[in-house]
Amino acid sequence: DERMTRFWITLEQGVRFVLKNFERMKGGEIFIPKIPSMRIIDLAKAMAPELGHKIIGIRPGEKLHEAMIASDDAMHTFEFSDHYVIAPSTEPSTNHRIEDFSQNASGEKGELVKSEFAYSSDKNTLWLDEAGIKQMIKNTPKV
Rank of each mutant, 00 (worst) to 15 (best):
E2N: 15
R3K: 15
R6C: 10
R6E: 11
W8D: 03
Q13R: 08
Q13L: 01
R16C: 03
R16I: 00
F17E: 02
V18M: 03
K20M: 00
K20W: 00
K20F: 00
N21V: 00
N21E: 04
F22T: 00
E23W: 00
R24I: 02
K26F: 03
K26Q: 13
G27P: 02
E29Q: 05
E29T: 01
E29A: 00
F31T: 02
F31H: 10
I32P: 02
P33Y: 04
K34C: 04
K34F: 01
I35D: 02
P36D: 11
S37A: 15
M38I: 14
M38E: 14
I40H: 10
I41Q: 12
K45Q: 15
A46M: 09
M47T: 12
M47Y: 07
A48M: 09
P49R: 09
E50A: 13
E50N: 14
H53M: 13
H53T: 11
H53G: 05
K54E: 13
I56Q: 06
G57K: 07
I58E: 14
I58F: 07
G61V: 06
L64M: 13
M68A: 09
M68L: 15
M68S: 07
A70Q: 10
S71H: 05
D72Q: 14
A74P: 03
M75H: 06
M75K: 14
M75R: 14
H76A: 05
T77Y: 00
T77I: 03
Y84F: 15
V85D: 00
A87C: 04
A87S: 11
S89T: 10
S89V: 10
E91L: 05
E91K: 11
P92V: 13
S93L: 07
S93A: 10
T94Q: 04
H96S: 10
H96D: 06
D100E: 08
N104F: 09
N104W: 06
N104H: 09
A105Y: 00
S106L: 15
E108D: 15
E111A: 14
V113I: 11
F117M: 08
S120V: 03
S120N: 12
D122W: 12
W127R: 13
D129V: 09
E130Q: 15
A131L: 13
K134Y: 02
K134M: 11
Q135Y: 04
Q135C: 04
M136A: 08
M136N: 06
T140E: 09
T140N: 05
P141D: 06
